[in-house]
Amino acid sequence: MKAFDYYRAESPADVIGTDARPIAGGTNLLDLMKHQVETPDRLADVNHVGLDGIERDGDGLRVGALVRNSDLAADPSVREGWPLLSRAILAGASGQIRNRATTGGNLMQRTRCYYFYDLDTPCNKRAPGSGCSAIGGVNRIHAILGASGDCIATYPGDMAVAMSALDAVVEVEGPNGRREIAATDFHRLPGDAPQRDNDLQPGEMILSVRLPAPLGGKHIYRKVRDRRSYAFALVSVAAVVVMDAGRMSTVRLAFGGVAHKPWRVPAAEALLQGQAPSPDLFDRAADAVLDGATGQGHNDFKIPLLRRTLNAVLAEATEGSK
């Protein structure tokens, strides 16, 4: 860990517009700093700036950036109106980590790509221009969608996958004021600048995440992984399905573990929306989701795995609602 200056921020204003790196839970940043993958010169401890409340926002909810994952998952209104979010959070990490990890920090979580963590191998995300070791290397956990020739890393989290499906909005503030970013657009595709995970600009800070009004219906988060708990997703499917008179009146889908960002395919949702559920229809939706999917060798299995998991989730979500 490189030496750094530390200060405790008393309010967001102490951080916004500065070159300091905010640290909240620290569960990913300190992990990376110990490996010297991250080497910030200044750390701003944002644990005492407030932003730790969950409040009503019309029919929706505003979740402060410093709300801990545990509190968010256990919050009665979240469990009631946005159970998908609770389920996704609870599928991730461990009780200890969820007690520290924050809403804003979790959005900033970086990839688990083995080579990103290894200072002695090329990695365009860690050292732009050095190359991608995962291509042609061990890539079982890597992306099948939206990858580039420069990077095939995935976003590893669960919470953001649910937020994407729920059409959440990330509220940020920078030196030029506040702006909103759709959760689905918050993370970027790697393209030729994989060093940038997301759309947050220098000097900006995440203030909160807004959840729009509850959708009702069934909320399913199915996470497939190598261990039953305490493991990152190989593939995860977040789904909200509202049934009306035997048809799917509302469908929201997002996928984790398969791309550099939570993967959302409006065309697949449109295909299902208004239709009666059927295995054939689910399969066509999977076709739409997997449009352009490419394996890297070790991760080829994620393509059929995503299809099968999606089919099962849709079957479960529409079961008995005819």
């Binding site: 640290i23 839970g25 620290g26 644990n47 009780g95 980590i97 520290r100």
Partner: peptide, 15 residues
């Protein structure tokens, strides 16, 4: 009152 991993926290953050 909450369990955490003490390895992933800086001592200065716990003043």
């Amino acid at each position: 009152g909450r369990r955490i991993n003490s390895c992933l926290s800086l001592a200065v953050m716990h003043d």
